[in-house]
Amino acid sequence: MFTSNGSCGPATALDNLSKRVGQDRTLENDHVARFRDQNSSQNRAFRAESSFNTTAGAEFGQFQNTSVQRNYFPSAELIRKNTRFGDNWSSEFRQQQENNKWVEDFGAMNLENVRMEQEQSFQTMDQRTNMQAMSSTANAWTQEFNHMQHNKEMEYEMRIRETQRLVNAPAREVFSMVNQHSQQHNQNFTHNQTQLGDQSHYMTNLAFERQFETVQNEIDGMDMFSDSEQVEQQKELQKEDDNNDIETTKFAEIAQQVFNQMNNVDTTVSQNTEHKFKQSNFLRLMDKVAQREVEINGSGDRFIDKTGNDIRDYLPDPLSDLR
């Protein structure tokens, strides 16, 4: 129900994955249906070719389009960054394009790997080998299936011609041919029984790869923005560091002024007050700040010395002489 094509619910990656995995695009359908009803016109209709052409092909095209859009369409975030970065947008855009190529390469490599495994299993299938050679990129995947459809159609026409020849042939030849065909069929059936499982696994892998690539592209789209945001954050951090440095310098200058004012009191100040000022911890702190021995830490909530320790750990106890 939830995985049906007619579902109006939100299309999530998991739904798409379930649809693709649940869709029977194995060659088993072809063989079983073929031998169940070779002359039926539904044989062609049952073949996943039509569903592939209409559904899988469309979805694959949509996937390609969306992936292209995700990679290259200047979304709201990019426009926002465009206003922020100005002329650097085009270069950033190109860099994002280049950064996203690895995903396509990654997908192609994965498909190629699967096909390489398949190639070992189906050494005898020359057409498949030719298709493997053709489909070196993700875009060639459609061509591969189109080619397969074409081959199947050719094979079907061949079988029709054979059937017509059988109808027109003498009974002995027909018997021998049927006998020969049944032996081949038995051999092919046992061979196909082993191969069908591999092919089903192969198609599942392909569907999974495509879904994986879709998800990967989505993640990559997020990465694209997060990368640019990281650059922006780095710039902001750099700006904050500059501001912090300016503030630290300004604070040191103020501390120097306070220190000078307290340390060089005029003659009207009593000796007692002057002595207190000389002993003042605040005056010492101002001296250290002025000498840049003590600074405000990055989070701005404490004074730290050169070793990064909180200076309050070293303040003397005012009650030490009273205890």
Binding site: F251, I254, Q257, V258, G300, D301
Partner: peptide, 11 residues
């Protein structure tokens, strides 16, 4: 004339 206020906390 003088920096009368020492910068306070960052919060």
């Amino acid at each position: 004339v003088q920096p009368s206020q020492v910068p306070m906390s960052k919060t």
